[in-house]
Design a protein around this nucleic acid. Structure first.
Length: 284
DNA sequence: CGTCCACGTCTAC
DNA sequence: TAGACCTGGACGG
């Protein structure tokens, strides 16, 4: 999915696709459980912004100043596609029809993506590490005494309240680049390697963004040019799903990829005898 | 055919 | 802290 970089690429795609178009209708696939809503305008334009793993579509009336925001998340596979009207993808669940015969569709095979009209950014998600870097750092520093920072850093990185936009591949790529035990308590990691950790929470999504979404299977940056391929030779991924890396299923049932030098050999031991570091289980 | 796996949340015991 | 929510691709028999 869409993690931070893909959300930003999705926003770029929507802005570019909708540019100059006037839309007049919204349709929902009845299969989808999402809310059907009316757009109270005869004609509207669409623009969008992303923040972490959220995106807001702004439907703006052509006739007056009214705007209807739609808050969205992309789930595991959601994205937008512009097609000729009538040629929409089988899994297009929310469609905006334009006067010149095109449809901007929200396509989502697994239907984990969601939308909610009249809503803007969720209060339970923190600032975007890429576009609101100072606020992102400050929010964490202001809350460092909270109990949630006792959790191992590899688990806390998935917490959208503090790391909005970081997902399963980004946490692996971020922690792989820090020479420290990836299961240590988050507070300790932030105290000892905070500057590097914060920087990586910004630069890894930036790198994935310029490389067109981390080159993840099923996600292709529609704007990628031949020059981008040349400029970005080599995979973005050094750790996630790479042969030779260590992996384990974490407490939340997600697969965590990490440097085998920190390999946990016995999940039942409080201290890992190979790395000499505390076993992640000791913190769960 | 079957089982496992996937870039993420949600909510119900 | 299990499951629930979904489809489809990879791979095994």
């Amino acid at each position: 999915m869409p993690e931070l970089a893909e959300l930003k690429l999705t926003a770029d795609y929507v802005n570019r696709s909708a540019k100059g178009k006037h839309f007049y209708a919204v349709q929902k696939n009845p299969e989808h459980k999402g809310q059907l809503f009316d757009v109270p305008f005869n004609e509207f334009i669409i623009h969008t912004r992303s923040r972490g793993k959220e995106l807001i579509l702004f439907l703006e009336s052509v006739d007056n100043q009214d705007t209807l925001p739609i808050r969205m998340t992309m789930g595991m596979a959601g994205h937008f596609r512009l097609t000729r009207t009538g040629e929409e993808n089988k899994h297009a669940h929310l469609k905006f029809l334009s006067r010149d015969g095109y449809t901007l569709s929200f396509v989502d095979v697994r239907r984990f993506g969601k939308w909610k009209p009249k809503e803007t950014w969720s209060s339970n998600r923190g600032p975007c590490p890429m576009t609101e870097f100072e606020e992102f750092k400050q929010t964490i520093m202001d809350n460092l005494d909270k109990k949630v920072f006792d959790k191992p850093i590899n688990e806390l990185l998935m917490d959208q309240k503090y790391f909005n936009g970081i997902g399963n591949y980004l946490r692996a790529e971020i922690l792989y680049r820090i020479d420290a035990y990836p299961f240590m308590p988050a507070r300790q990691m932030i105290k000892e390697h905070g500057d590097q950790l914060f920087d990586l929470c910004k630069t890894m999504p930036e790198l994935a963004y310029v490389r067109g979404g981390g080159e993840i299977k099923d996600w292709n940056n529609p704007f990628k040019t031949e020059n981008d391929y040349i400029r970005t030779t080599g995979s973005f991924f050094k750790c996630y799903a790479k042969k030779g890396m260590a992996q384990l299923i974490d407490k939340t049932k997600r697969r965590f990829w990490y440097d085998p030098k920190w390999k946990v050999l016995d999940m039942n031991q409080e201290w890992d005898y190979y790395s000499g570091m505390p076993n992640p289980k000791a913190y769960s």
